[in-house]
């Protein structure tokens, strides 16, 4: 289903403000990483809806804002809204300011009709790097935008951060996305721009309005052309890192069973065997950090790191 038909369908709706004409209320989930402006975007939307005489309920998790953590905000609007939170799987529009956050919340989107608008910007959280093995792949999502789009009723992967950067202010990426979001609703353009100007810092009104229009025209353009499957970002995301292999060599004759390597190995992959000689129990867990090699007072351990290619 194209957005154009969406918009046409919703135009009969009171206030002209629904992506889903027949159903009340409209559920918008806005997600991102602390500091990206999730809350600002939801305030813009809520204020706009209020100005159009609609009831709005908004709830958010913003405690992680300063820590680069996951932030989300529910915005529900319509003639009558009872609960401030969106029931599971009832999201009409998922607006994501960060790629992995978008994927995290994707299951909340209505399977048949949901619209997914997502920045391809990647902010890699520390826990995506938990595997400390050298060359280990990050556990950040490796799906390409094309792969994701194929599974969603209607999806747009927008390189909003780059677009905003080209306008001279990377921080306006969120308004690029607001522009994209605006195409899924029937509020007049002038109202969007008026509310937006109220909520962004005064000095940046100009660039934000430009960003907003850019986001709008980008979506309109994307709607006209066939769904974009070429995805220049995709290859970058999919490029696999070649893991290196680790070999731990233990000189049994020199080991004095002091237990230091066993107790200090951060991965707990060494033990003393029945003869009380150090031995590697779980080669797959070894990250090649060399702590055992450094701390063995008897020079009994040597860690060999080899690029995978060198291993026959």
């Amino acid at each position: 289903m194209s957005l154009a038909s969406e918009v046409a369908e919703s135009s009969q709706h009171s206030g002209g403000a629904a992506a889903r004409g027949s159903r009340e209320p409209v559920n918008v989930l806005i997600v991102g990483v602390g500091g990206q402006g999730v809350i600002m975007v939801s305030k813009v939307l809520a204020s706009l809806c209020q100005a159009h005489g609609l009831q709005v309920k908004q709830s958010e998790v913003h405690g992680m804002a300063k820590r680069g953590g996951s932030v989300f905000s529910h915005v529900r609007f319509g003639k009558q809204v009872w609960s401030p939170t969106i029931p599971k799987g009832d999201v009409d529009i998922l607006l994501a300011l960060e790629w992995a956050e978008g994927l995290r919340w994707l299951p909340q989107l209505r399977a048949e009709t949901g619209i997914f608008i997502c920045d391809t910007k990647r902010i890699v959280p520390p826990f995506a790097c938990l595997n400390r093995r050298q060359g280990a792949p990050m556990r950040y999502s490796r799906e390409t935008p094309a792969e994701v789009i194929a599974h969603v009723a209607e999806a747009y992967a927008v390189d909003a951060t780059r677009m905003a950067d080209e306008l001279g202010n990377e921080r306006a990426a969120n308004t690029v996305l607001v522009g994209a979001l605006s195409t899924a609703m029937e509020f007049p353009l002038a109202d969007w721009e008026r509310v937006l100007a109220e909520f962004v810092p005064r000095k940046t009104v100009g660039v934000n309005l430009e960003a907003f229009r850019l986001g709008r025209s980008w979506i309109e353009e994307a709607r006209r052309t066939a769904p974009d499957t070429s995805d220049p970002q995709g290859q970058g995301l999919a490029a696999a890192v070649v893991p290196s292999t680790v070999r731990v060599e233990i000189e049994a004759q020199w080991c004095k069973s002091c237990d230091i390597c066993v107790k200090l190995c951060p991965e707990r992959c060494l033990r003393l065997n029945s003869e009380r000689i150090a031995e590697l129990t779980d080669p797959a867990k070894c990250t090649g950090c060399r702590l055992c090699e450094w701390l063995c007072p008897d020079f009994a351990i040597r860690v060999h790191l080899q690029p995978a290619a060198a291993v026959a």
Partner: peptide
């Protein structure tokens, strides 16, 4: 770095007690 290139292999294992920090300092 391979410590074995800098020590007298014929003298190993050394005489220090198990876990003695002196071995780590030598490395």
């Amino acid at each position: 770095f391979d410590v074995r290139k800098y020590i007298r292999l014929q003298m190993m294992p050394h005489f220090l007690c198990p876990g003695c920090g002196h071995g780590i300092a030598l490395r």
